[in-house]
Nucleic acid binder design. Structure first.
Lengths: 186, 186
DNA sequence: CGTTTTCTGGATTGTCAACTCCAGAAGTCG
DNA sequence: CGACTTCTGGAGTTGACAATCCAGAAAACG
């Protein structure tokens, strides 16, 4: 399944055959169909796997996004990660979402749930800041988090297409500015 | 080719066979291969077609995004469009970008060029505002436009996945706020 | 230890995809 | 009108892909 996830990440779901997965994992096709009912179920397992992987890759920062420096560090981590990849490959979840959202309703729900978990992590940090008085009362953590995650997704897509981290940086910096503006001293 | 564009928009490039295109267009396969060297060239033609279609769909607003009300109207147009589609199908360019960026270098460049044209249109409006004194000198039209287009792309992807316009609205509103903040009276 | 269940390798099947071919129709041009 | 080029229909070829099948190897269990 890790083999499937890796292949589907850089060739897409449609571009990855069960034969490719079979070969990469060094198993026979009967094994594949013993553990996964069919390709669709394998894809759903890959979605679950990538969701965990993406969230884990942002730890320990992600669960402590409760200060401006932490947010900045998180932003830098993501930009660096894409730079290391030479802007090849977008977001493991986002790519799957784009390919599967309209084609596979169950996959769409899994992906939406993954995004929701991600967004919640960001929101919780912002909510903690607001509770601590580092953000004004009018600040809406839910909406700010949603806008930030959305900007991140767009940034990863545009970065992948243009082979430059500029869109990712512009979008994330705009998000962080939107959060900074909500600080009391502003 | 319009038939190909429509099919690829709602089934993806990989999910659309030349046979599907053939049938939808009501032509024979020899015609398809007479006018297009192979499927890849057909895809590139579809990219060009969709780029024009997307930019045209935003006119006349897009080429006059030089005031806050115009930007707001443009934002509303896009949100309404997605709502009419019941959040099915993302951005015709963005979807192709996600599917093809890493698989087809030539397609990637075409798509990047499409995004660049789109971004330029937004930037030109912002630059006009700055020249007219409606935005402060420190405002960076290029960067604001890039962040806005990026937020839009993320918004369309997240909206397609979650079947709600909330992410699109949150991201675009954040962009417009970032622009409003650059108005002189702020 | 013997029976039953689970697991595995590898060959196989049926389907569908991209692409080719050729014979003839339609259009072009002197 | 007649030679030539471009265009079109539809059958055909080739390869790849998802999925199946079955015989035998391991494990589990009483």
């Amino acid at each position: 399944m890790a083999a499937a996830a890796a292949l589907m990440f850089d060739r897409g779901v449609a571009g990855t055959s069960t034969e490719d997965v079979r070969a990469a994992a060094g198993v026979s096709s009967s094994q594949l169909y013993h553990y996964f009912e069919n390709k669709q179920q394998l894809v759903r397992a890959v979605i679950a796997h990538q969701t965990e992987a993406v969230l884990a890759a942002q730890e320990p920062l992600l669960s402590r996004l409760d200060s401006l420096p932490a947010l900045q560090a998180w932003r830098d981590l993501i930009v660096d990660l894409q730079r290391q990849r030479h802007c090849v490959g977008g977001c493991p979840i986002g790519s799957l979402a784009s390919e599967l959202a309209d084609a596979d309703p169950e996959a769409r729900q899994d992906l939406a749930a993954g995004f929701a978990r991600w967004g919640s992590a960001i929101r919780d940090g912002l909510a903690a800041m607001r509770d601590r008085g580092e953000l004004r009362e009018e600040a809406d953590p839910e909406r700010l988090a949603l806008a930030t995650l959305t900007a991140l997704q767009g940034g990863l897509l545009m970065t992948q297409t243009s082979r430059s981290t500029a869109p990712l940086e512009a979008a994330l910096d705009m998000s962080l500015d939107a959060i900074r503006v909500m600080a009391p001293q502003h």
